[in-house]
Computed example of a mutant assay.
Amino acid sequence: MASHHAFLEKVKTKGNLKDLDEAKNAAEVVFRTMRDVMSNEAVERVEEELDKSATDEVEDLWEDTNPIVSFLSKIRPQLKIKPENFLVRLRQEGNLPERDAETIIKAVFSATKEELSSERIQEVGSYLPGEIQEMWQQA
C-alpha cells in the first residue's frame, strides 16, 4: 500500500473519503469502468504512459487485479455505459453507497490526469460518456 500512498492520498482528500482503503477501492472501480469504455489500444497507451511515470503507484492501480476480469476485458468489445451506470458501479463495486460518487470520480480523474500527457488526457476523455466526460474535463 505504501507505493500507492501519494496518489491515494490525493484521491482521499479530494474525494472526501475516510481512509486510503476507500480511496483504493474507488480508484480501482473508476479505472475498471474507464477501461471498460475504452478500446484495448487506448487502455494500453494509458498503461504505457503510466509505466513511464516516476512511480508505479497509478500503473499498479490501473491494471485489474482480477486475472479473469482482465482477460475478459481484452477479448470483448468496449462497453457502452450510461453516465448513471458509471456512478452506480462506483457506489456498488466500490462499497461506497453513502458517498458522493461525483466528487469521488472527479478526485480519481484529477489525480490521474496529473500522471498523463495532454494527448492521453484528450484521448481518455473522448471515450467517456456524457456527464462523466464533463467531470473528466473539469477535474
Rank of each mutant, 00 (worst) to 15 (best):
A23D: 05
K24W: 11
A27D: 01
V29R: 00
V29W: 00
V30I: 08
V30H: 03
F31E: 02
F31G: 01
T33E: 07
T33Q: 09
T33N: 03
R35S: 07
R35N: 02
R35D: 01
R35H: 01
R35L: 05
R35A: 05
D36M: 13
E41A: 12
E41C: 04
E41N: 09
E41W: 02
E44G: 09
E44C: 00
R45N: 10
E48P: 00
A54K: 14
T55W: 10
E57G: 15
E59F: 13
E59A: 14
W62L: 03
D64E: 14
I75H: 00
R76C: 04
L79V: 12
K80D: 15
I81D: 08
E84Y: 12
L87R: 14
V88I: 12
Q92I: 13
Q92M: 09
Q92E: 15
L96R: 07
P97W: 02
P97L: 06
P97N: 08
R99P: 02
R99A: 15
D100K: 14
D100M: 01
D100L: 04
A101C: 08
A101W: 01
E102C: 06
E102H: 10
E102M: 10
T103L: 10
F109Y: 10
F109S: 11
S110D: 13
T112A: 12
K113Q: 15
K113R: 15
L116N: 09
S117D: 06
